[in-house]
Design a protein around this nucleic acid. Structure first.
Lengths: 207, 207
DNA sequence: AAAAATAATTGAACACTGTTTAAAATCAAA
DNA sequence: TTTGATTTTAAACAGTGTTCAATTATTTTT
């Protein structure tokens, strides 16, 4: 029965081609401004046939970003070997910002976009487990920092939230285009500059 | 010529009614999912007539946007009398967070929601004047802090952005319900707790 | 008061959008 | 070759932002 398998492979291949085209267009001109017809045109199929592979546009979006948390987590894991928790914390911040700036649409879905009402009840809270995972990783690192004498007088949970908020704040203001209030000549680098200032502050809080 | 004035007032009144309806619908179902026809229906006018008062949908969004900044700015002005820039900075942070938590929908519109602006054609910064105003206020305060010996080694622009990002990050994670990853018993107070930690950090950076 | 000018409002139209669906094409199995 | 099940398509539906000629209402001028 090799035929059924080949058909299955063909179907999967077209699914992937749809996802590829969608990803290209989403990153190129944004999710909202990409139409199903645009995607269909790119892969030279009719708009209708896309609905044989995905329930709707949201599902395409969802499928594309399903691995978002896992991607971020796998990026984070490369610093697990870093013994110094303060150094690890800074590297995590850089990885987080890089991920957001390189995948603004994914980041948008993961951390900015209005969370759908059914995301708790549905089975796809797998993604949220990954979300918990990344925050736990941050919390564990900060706990280590505190245990090794850093951040004296600060509290683990609130500080973890504050650190996350700081990097999230920078990238989300950038992604949602609220950086136009900063000096024009600084706009291109303001997130990286802000992160640098943040690292500098972390260094000061080390001792 | 009181007639011309009355006409002017009538015109302004309809303009305000359009803005009122738009605000209601934008906050209720989002900017993108609110149509000109929805707004027209609510005020019982035809869709076309709205275009006699606003160039396009973007202009309606910007008008509301501007109103929000005026609100925030007027709240900020009450600390202008505070002589100590560090104390003023902290009070500004508290005011910002309070504004966001008390008016989450407006904050959402101002700083989180996808701005439908065509940033290429709409580089006219008239709309952002108010935005510039509040950020300039922050920048000026931080400049004062630096001039009075605080934040040694830090740079005005990037630090201003970082401070803004930190408070924005906290409130936007809260508004968009991403705080479920923090400990359950802390979720209710995590923004206030985070702000407290932030103030504590600012104190450390004072000297 | 009647006519002209001006302003406000409308509804239809245009080119889009996401999505549905009946029909057509394709193709493995009988 | 015929059957039966997929796959694909084109057309249609209901919606979108926006434009515009035509209509209506109002003010100004005669």
């Amino acid at each position: 029965m090799g035929i059924a398998e080949r058909k299955e492979r063909d179907k999967e291949e077209l699914r992937e081609r749809i996802l590829g085209a969608a990803k290209t267009l989403f990153l190129e001109k944004g999710v909202e401004k990409t139409s199903i017809r645009n995607i269909a045109d790119l892969i030279e199929y009719s708009p209708g046939s896309i609905y044989h592979y995905f329930k709707d546009k949201n599902e395409i979006f969802h499928a594309l970003h399903q691995g978002g948390f896992q991607q971020l987590m796998s990026r984070m894991e490369v610093v697990a070997s870093q013994a110094d928790p303060m150094e690890r914390l800074k590297r995590m911040g850089a990885i987080y910002v890089d991920f957001a700036l390189e995948n603004p649409d994914m980041y948008d879905l993961m951390f900015i976009k209005e969370a759908p009402m059914d995301h708790v009840s549905n089975s796809n809270d797998e993604q949220w487990k990954e979300g918990f995972g990344t925050f736990n990783f941050l919390r564990a690192t900060i706990k280590e920092c505190i245990l090794t004498g850093h951040f004296r007088g600060h509290e683990e949970e609130a500080l973890s939230f504050l650190v996350w908020s700081t990097v999230h704040g920078m990238v989300s203001l950038h992604i949602r285009r609220r950086c136009e209030v900063v000096l024009a000549q600084r706009q291109a680098t303001i997130v990286k500059d802000g992160l640098h200032e943040f690292f500098s502050i972390l260094d000061r809080l080390s001792s």
